[in-house]
Design a protein around this nucleic acid. Structure first.
Length: 516
RNA sequence: GCUCCGGUGGUGUAGCCCGGUUAAGCAUUUCGGCCUUUCGAGCCGAAGAUCGCGGGUUCAAAUCCCGCCCGGAGCACCA
């Protein structure tokens, strides 16, 4: 018995085990599936955790947002808590209507359903109330220095005269900000500590006058709060228990808590994590925008970009983004993960659902002089039941120049899923002879198409930067022939061109290579 | 420059807070082998880190302490 089993190959042993003793198989192989989760959150109580994702609607969401998104969302889920999507839209000069929508769509695509969706600009009256309260209590003051002086004094750790104006007077100046003052004439500052080592605390700006039209509020308001005023109040009032934000906010923790103390509000827990950067890929809007504007990429959905739109167009599944981002964890250490990490995750997800087709780049004619004419049905997936396609073959084929290069006269190769051929002549074109149907142990297999094929273009996205230098060859175009069954491929379908890679159909007869 | 935060194999991460059978786990990558629709997946195996550097505490340190070096972020009337 033992001998009998051992005579089988490992693969067959495994198969036999799976077929005949499914329980044992499951125990051996399935249970080691690992569920990746985040480390426990400090002071988190099951059922009571509330997190939030507060994007500013001033650009398209990208993978960096996805990181913040999933960290907050997954923690809320992990503790059966709540997750809030909050648009931090208090800079009317920057916000645009289309971006609110872009974020909502992005979340939807990623499969994230917020328990609450809100806009910070809806709470303006609340902010005004707090402003008045805090001015009265002496925590805030109206500063009428010009912007340059403010900056200078901060550098010099110097207080200005407005700081000590009595509250009643300051309150009147606050009212004047709504009417007579012009943009730049006056701001509201938090009384921090002008000699603090952390310059964030040197009386940061809490309100300023912005006359730009707000996409949602129009010209209803012109005294707008800044992030530093809004974030702690919103988080606290919304019941956020854990505010998980990127590391660049770390220096503002102090201010965040001082604000809440001043306003006598509950303090959420702050947790920071490192920003995501992808090797060879600009992630921030600041870096992507010039590329779009200079036409160096095909808009915000260019597959070389880490925008959600770009990722999707490239054939990266939302689930892959989630797993990738989750694997990065919440650590504060800076790292520069590479695309192949994301691709590896995506490949695992896409492999079982991608239909297989033949694609021949740089086709070279092949004639098999004594080939039998065949009418066959080929499976669309080696082991999943995804249907089949019909192919009729004769004597004429096309194979890729690269495969031809590797062939010598006299070699035997197998036309994949078809039969073996022996190369009899090779000179620009290739001539061969039928060499049997059976699969021989070590035969090389190459993909092929018949004359009944169609031109197909594959775009291959690569890194936009190599060692910080713009890579002008970041997008390669490969032209070739795809088998006729590809005619009916819907846009958006993710397929695998055998021995070429996984691709997402981008347009009729055009696809984008996601990865090998 | 100042302030803060980081520094574990090529890459990402676990471990560090509560120092000891693990002198470093997992994933990715690369390379072999198996599997006969694959330069893919899966399976098996291998390669690869003395845990930034130098001191110290201790019987014992990636884990605690000190100094240094390197990297990142912030220093907006942006978020």
């Amino acid at each position: 018995m033992v001998q009998e089993v051992n005579s089988l190959s490992i693969g067959k042993q495994t198969k036999k085990l799976q077929d005949e003793f499914p329980d044992a198989y499951a125990e051996l192989f399935e249970k080691k599936e690992e569920i990746k989760t985040f480390p426990p959150l400090p002071d988190a109580e099951h059922g009571k955790v509330v997190t939030r994702f507060p994007p500013e609607p001033n650009g398209f969401p990208h993978i960096g947002h996805a990181k913040a998104l999933f960290i907050n969302y997954e923690y809320a889920k992990m503790y059966s808590g709540k997750f809030i999507l909050r648009f931090d839209d208090t800079n009317p000069a920057a916000e645009k209507l289309e971006y609110y929508d872009a974020f909502s769509k992005g979340l939807e695509w990623l499969g994230i359903k917020p328990d609450t969706v809100k806009k910070t600009s809806d709470d303006m009256e609340i902010f005004y109330d707090y402003a008045k309260k805090l001015i009265k209590a002496g925590y805030l003051y109206v500063c009428q220095c010009d912007p340059e002086t403010v900056k200078q004094n901060r550098g010099l750790a110097k207080e200005c005269g407005h700081r000590n104006i009595p509250a009643e007077d300051a309150l009147q100046r606050w009212e004047r900000m709504f009417s007579e003052f012009e943009e730049g004439d006056a701001i509201v500052r938090f009384k921090g500590d002008m000699v603090a080592a952390n310059t964030v605390m040197r009386d940061p700006t809490m309100f300023r006058i912005v006359d730009a039209e707000h996409p949602l509020k129009g010209t209803k308001y012109r005294v707008w709060p800044t992030y530093d005023f809004v974030a702690p109040i919103e988080d606290s009032k919304d019941g956020v228990t854990h505010a998980l934000r990127a590391k660049e906010y770390e220096l503002r923790d102090d201010l965040y808590y001082r604000m809440l103390e001043a306003a006598k509000l509950r303090k959420p827990k702050l947790v920071e994590f490192s920003r995501l950067s992808l090797r060879g890929t600009p992630v921030s809007k600041r870096k992507i925008k010039p590329l779009v504007e200079q036409g160096l990429v095909d808009g915000w959905s260019d597959p070389r970009l880490p925008t959600l739109l770009g990722l999707r167009r490239r054939g990266i599944l939302p689930e892959a983004i989630k797993e990738f981002v989750t694997s990065l964890g919440v650590s504060k250490s800076e790292s520069e993960p590479t695309w192949d990490l994301l691709e590896a995750v995506n490949r695992k997800l896409v492999d079982p659902i991608a239909k297989r087709y033949f694609f021949v780049p740089d086709p070279v004619p092949l004639e098999v002089v004594d080939a039998p004419a065949l009418q066959l049905k080929l499976k669309l997936h080696p082991d999943k039941n995804l249907g089949e396609r019909n192919v009729a073959t004769g004597k004429e084929f096309l194979i890729s120049a690269k495969d031809v290069e590797a062939l010598k006269e006299g070699d035997t190769v197998r036309l994949m899923e078809l039969f073996n051929i022996k190369i009899s002549r090779k000179n620009g074109e290739v001539t061969g002879k039928f060499a049997g149907m059976e699969v021989t142990a070590s035969s090389k297999k190459i993909q092929w198409v018949t004359k009944d094929s169609m031109p197909f273009t594959v775009k291959i996205p690569g890194p936009l930067y190599i060692d910080e230098v713009y890579n002008k060859d970041s997008l390669q175009i490969v032209k070739g022939l795809a088998e006729s069954a590809c005619k009916s491929l819907p846009i958006g379908e993710i397929i695998q061109f055998i021995r070429f890679g996984f691709c997402r159909v981008d347009a009729p007869q055009v696809c984008i290579l996601a990865h090998k």
